[in-house]
């Protein structure tokens, strides 16, 4: 129990939980991306992948609950730590300056909360199908058709691309940062870990944005 207390309630421990949950969520994002990219392989393969996921049954629920847990913990700790950070400097500098902190690192809570809002919309959009009435007329199990229908609205697609931009900024700092927080920062390892964040961020942004853009451009029908 002492260990739990140290992880949840200490500055360093809480950061480690942030890192680990962040890593889990990043893993999910990458897995999600690789599944989604099947859309370029055609309706059949994409729908089969979706059906395959569904058939996992109990396992899928374990994964979902795990992710939900990681997500909730990540957001909870982020809000808590940020509140502590804000209160640690009650009087701001009259002349603010930033020496080397990256843009991404300075807006983690903002991009993070944007992601939380996006996830809520994303679930309502494609998982619960509450937002788009046109989905009701689509045949059961034709996820491919649903994605195309969803992204044929430029407004929705634009929103998704913007959200992915926010996500990629979040990952850009987050992924590299994980190594430092977990104590894996090391002279020899560093040049690699420093680049890993931007690399993951780029992959995620390009990968995810390619789908709505391809739909809008009529490359995927």
């Amino acid at each position: 129990m002492k260990l739990c207390d140290r992880l949840f309630n200490s500055s360093v421990g809480a950061k480690m939980l942030m890192a680990v949950t962040g890593l889990m969520l990043t893993g999910f994002v990458l897995a999600h991306l690789s599944g989604n990219l099947l859309i370029f392989a055609g309706a059949e393969k994409f729908n089969a992948y979706a059906a395959g996921l569904k058939s996992l049954g109990a396992l899928l629920w374990v994964a979902r609950l795990g992710l939900l847990g990681a997500f909730v913990l990540h957001v909870y700790l982020a809000v808590k730590l940020t509140a502590e950070n804000r209160s640690a400097r009650p009087v701001k500098y009259a002349h603010e300056a930033t020496i080397q902190a990256s843009f991404a690192s300075r807006y983690m809570i903002h991009t993070g909360l944007m992601m939380a809002a996006f996830i809520a919309f994303h679930l309502a959009h494609y998982t619960f199908r509450w937002t788009d009435p046109s989905f009701a007329s689509l045949p059961e199990g034709d996820i491919y058709a649903m994605v195309i229908a969803g992204f044929s609205s430029p407004a929705v697609s634009g929103f998704y691309v913007l959200a992915m931009l926010a996500l990629s900024f979040h990952l850009c700092h987050g992924v590299s940062s994980v190594f430092q927080t977990l104590g894996l920062y090391h002279g020899n390892l560093n040049p690699m870990t420093e680049k890993l964040g931007p690399i993951v961020a780029t992959i995620v942004f390009v990968g995810f944005s390619s789908i709505p853009l391809a739909v809008l451009a009529g490359l995927v029908k």
Binding site: S11, V12, A14, K15, L81, E84, N85, R86, S87, A88, R89, T98, I99, Q100, A101, S102, S105, R106, M108, H173, S176, S177, F179, Q180, T181, G183, L184, Y185, H186, G187
Partner: peptide
């Protein structure tokens, strides 16, 4: 005090050029 968010402003400001490697 607040918590570290790995932005390394400390390292840039440190007059003795102490590396954030020590934080890791």
């Amino acid at each position: 005090f607040g918590n570290c968010t790995n932005q390394y402003e400390c390292e840039a400001a440190c007059p003795k050029e102490i590396s954030v490697e020590h934080i890791a």
